[in-house]
């Protein structure tokens, strides 16, 4: 096990997704990187638990959950995030694929909880001019650490693959780990229930990440393929934005980039990272505005 990695324990001693189990089953072996360290994930014929070899010679613990392989480079200090929706029988649980992005994973998380880009980057689907206003919403901290944004409402012309017309959609965002975020979105057919999308962001290095998506959608008239295609399309609209952000790491100093009221959630996220002393993939307060 690499000692003195320099990576803060909150990340080093936590679980991160490094591969999709379906992809690993197909390939037998996947070489990747986590927090700057190279590792190889292998599946031998008999075991569903992959073994992870580190470049440095060590072996890291691995688990399979939600269709993904999770690895902890240090000593696990807590369990993998729980997604109760994934136990619901009337949902499609979909791995929408993993995409490499040339930006800090923290930027990818922040982009996911951002409402004011929807009418531009996802025009025609998750938003549309002139419905650009972001009404006031609430931001709070979660009891176990993390950020929750509630009362988020946004007009969406085609909010999901089953939507046929535009309507105001209710959102709840939860950032549960520095590199993990989930969104609950009111279902267009049964607004009393919600569809869930989680983003597990694998910090490959400070300026590169892999975004792994997990969706738990009410089956309705949907197919699994439709859920996956929709998620891939939406994420790949964000990708060129993320890859054009300068600097690639997320600046935590509030004076580095100008927030507005609509950015309350993003501002809270940056503050929470700062207070938790998360530095990997960030530009800390004291370094440059």
């Amino acid at each position: 096990m690499p000692e003195g990695s320099g990576v803060e324990s909150a990340l080093w001693d936590d679980w991160h997704v490094v591969a999709e189990i379906a992809e690993l089953t197909r390939l037998g072996r996947i070489a990747t990187q986590l927090l700057g360290f190279s590792l190889v994930v292998e599946l031998d014929n008999r075991s569903v638990i992959p073994s992870v070899d580190l470049e440095s010679g060590g072996v890291a613990p691995a688990k399979v959950k939600y269709g993904y392989v999770w690895v902890c480079l240090g000593t696990p200090n807590r369990d993998i995030v729980d997604f109760p929706e994934c136990a619901d029988r009337d949902r499609w649980i979909v791995n929408a694929g993993s995409f490499g992005v040339a930006v800090s994973g923290l930027r990818a998380v922040e982009n996911f909880l951002d409402m004011s880009h929807l009418a531009f980057v996802h025009a025609g689907y998750l938003g549309e001019e002139p419905h650009t206003e972001v009404p006031k919403y609430k931001v709070a901290t979660l009891p176990d650490g993390g950020i929750v944004a509630t009362d988020c409402k946004f007009y969406q012309p085609l909010a999901s693959p089953v939507a046929t017309e535009g309507f105001d959609v209710d959102y709840v965002y939860r950032i549960v780990r520095p590199y993990t975020i989930m969104l609950h979105k009111a279902n267009p057919i049964d607004p009393s229930r919600s569809d869930m999308i989680a983003l597990f962001v694998q910090p490959v290095s400070e300026e590169r990440c892999v975004v792994h998506m997990l969706l738990a959608y009410l089956k309705d008239e949907l197919t699994e393929a439709a859920v996956r295609q929709f998620a891939q399309m939406i994420f790949n609209q964000d990708k060129p934005i993320l890859e054009n952000q300068l600097p690639k790491r997320l600046p935590l100093n509030p004076r580095a980039e100008v927030p507005i009221r609509a950015d309350a959630a993003s501002a809270a996220y940056r503050r929470w990272l700062h207070e938790g002393d998360i530095r990997y993939g960030a530009i800390p307060h004291d370094l440059g505005v």
């Binding site: 197909r26 694929g97 891939q232």
Partner: peptide, 9 residues
């Protein structure tokens, strides 16, 4: 006709 190119191949 959407083909699941990735990751479904």
């Amino acid at each position: 006709i959407a083909i699941d190119f990735y990751p479904g191949r």
